[in-house]
Amino acid sequence: MSETETYSATAEVAQVRQRTSRGKRIWIDLKKAPISAWFGLIVISIYGLVAVFAPLLAPYDQADTSFGAYLPWGDGHLLGTDQIGRDFFSRLIYGARNTIGIALATTLLSFLVGGSLGLMAAISRNWIDQVLSRLVDVLMAIPSLIFALMLLSIFGSTTWGLIVIIAILDSTRVFRLTRAVSLNVVVMDYVEVAQLRGEKLGWVMRREILPNILPPLIAEFGLRFSFVFLTIAALSFLGVGIQPPTADWGSMVRENASLIQFAKYDILGAITPLLPAAAIALLTVAVNFVVDWFLHKTSGLKDEH
């Protein structure tokens, strides 16, 4: 080796990042986030606030039928009243609370079930894995909306029944993803290093595997939430989901859909039933934007050019 270029390990070129606190890092990431992600985050926050503070924000109760049916916009009722005289605006606000709350509970349950089973299957890789994977294959061979309809016909439509049924059907997809990403991590040399060191299974799962499968699972949580949210909205729209008098966006569309027929005479009235549908679409788009950004950021995916 020459005199001019003495080798120093410390001086080797590497991307060194200034170490910063977690909060600061998040803020830096946010500042670099594209407009779509910002839009998504803001929309989600607004929905969240509306859902949490629904009773304070809504002028009337969701089940209050003491008004005339199909009242027009304005005049004490911002968006008019529905077919049995409930304040539409109040129901829209309560709908955020009910629809989002139920979808969130369902997604959480489905991750609890699918995530833990998927992790277990990936680590054990024995008959448990075999049995669970085959079971999931079969469950996924039935379209989940159809399966949900069938189960609802048997157990009837209660809120809890709905949550459990959809969560279990959806957990098959969570299982598959968790298992797949965990399998990718389990084969990593650092997991072998931990095993060779003599670490216990719990430690390996908690410290070596979990931190590495979290980013894709968080992204999946967003996508699954959108999917569950759409499924529940669809079931409610079909009249077999969330039951009256609980306000929810799916059934609100259906109950007032006939107003669309009269668009020529009352365009505002015709738009009314579309508002909850638009609210659903807006939230799903927002979640998708945020998930896209998050995936892009954590996977280091490069733009295709």
């Binding site: 990593m188 040399d189 650092y190 290093v193 003599g198 410290r207 070596e208 590495n212």
Partner: peptide, 27 residues
């Protein structure tokens, strides 16, 4: 591996070809 004592494990260590995959990126 499971039958080996901690001391036996300690005495034999291993270094891998791909340092990238041998270190947990989150640690």
């Amino acid at each position: 591996l499971r039958q080996r004592s901690r001391a036996q494990l300690q005495h034999i260590q291993m270094i891998y070809q791909m340092a990238d995959t041998a270190m947990n990126p989150k640690q």
